[in-house]
């Protein structure tokens, strides 16, 4: 019920709003150009005054649109959530508008999403990496990035020169093991989902 009311109200400012599949809270897909407006309406007219979570989903390397940004808004009055999702236009250089004007907390959450997915937030005041170090070349939560990681330099050249330490792919041969449901039953042997190092793929030098 609430979802339908909310949808009708939001469609006034953004006619292209669609329902998004959700198992719990009202969820909407909105065109990325209208994202800021929809969130503003939610915040100012419907009491969704807390941005609890801002993140993204990588829909897979081959998928298009590949990246979806997802926001969870919470209302401190009615104590309910809504989920707003928007697909990023470009699959290789995804961008999204920033919400830092509406919520100060968006600053760090968008930096995190930029760090882990490589989504650029346009208009963000200070878009730097936040979890990985500044010149780390990859975006770890993209689906084409293996859990084990890639070989790389560590962040401090001086220490790297003194000790010869590098960022090495983690050993995955010991698991975690998961049986893939997709394949034929007799082949369903539990294997590490991440296969960057196992019997077939040689262990990277260490």
């Amino acid at each position: 019920m609430i979802a339908q009311d909310l949808k009708a109200a939001l469609q006034e400012s953004c006619p292209d709003l669609e329902d998004r599949d959700s198992l719990d809270w009202p969820a909407f897909n909105c065109p990325i150009s209208a994202l800021v407006d929809v969130v503003r309406v939610l915040k100012e007219d419907h009491g969704y005054d807390v941005l609890t979570d801002a993140t993204a989903i990588d829909n897979g390397v081959a998928a298009s649109p590949r990246f979806t940004v997802v926001y969870h808004l919470f209302s401190s009055q009615s104590h309910t959530y809504t989920r707003i999702a928007a697909n990023c236009d470009d699959d290789s250089e995804p961008t999204a508008p920033t919400l830092t004007d509406l919520f100060k907390g968006a600053n760090w959450m968008e930096r995190e999403t930029f760090d882990l997915f490589g989504i650029r937030y346009e208009g963000h005041p200070d878009l730097r990496r936040i979890l990985m170090w500044d010149d780390y070349p990859h975006h770890p939560l993209r689906k084409d990035f293996p859990l084990a990681g890639f070989e790389n330099e560590i962040s401090d050249p001086e220490i790297a020169a003194n000790t010869g330490v590098k960022v090495k792919p983690a050993p995955m041969a010991g698991g975690p093991f998961v049986a893939q449901q997709s394949c034929f039953e007799s082949k369903r042997e539990p294997v590490a989902k991440d296969e960057s190092w196992n019997e077939q793929n040689e262990k990277p030098d260490s």
Partner: peptide, 17 residues
Amino acid sequence: TGGMYRSYATLQGVDRI
């Protein structure tokens, strides 16, 4: 040894450094 965190971000054992 890196313990349960076999991942891209974790040094696999402090004895490497």
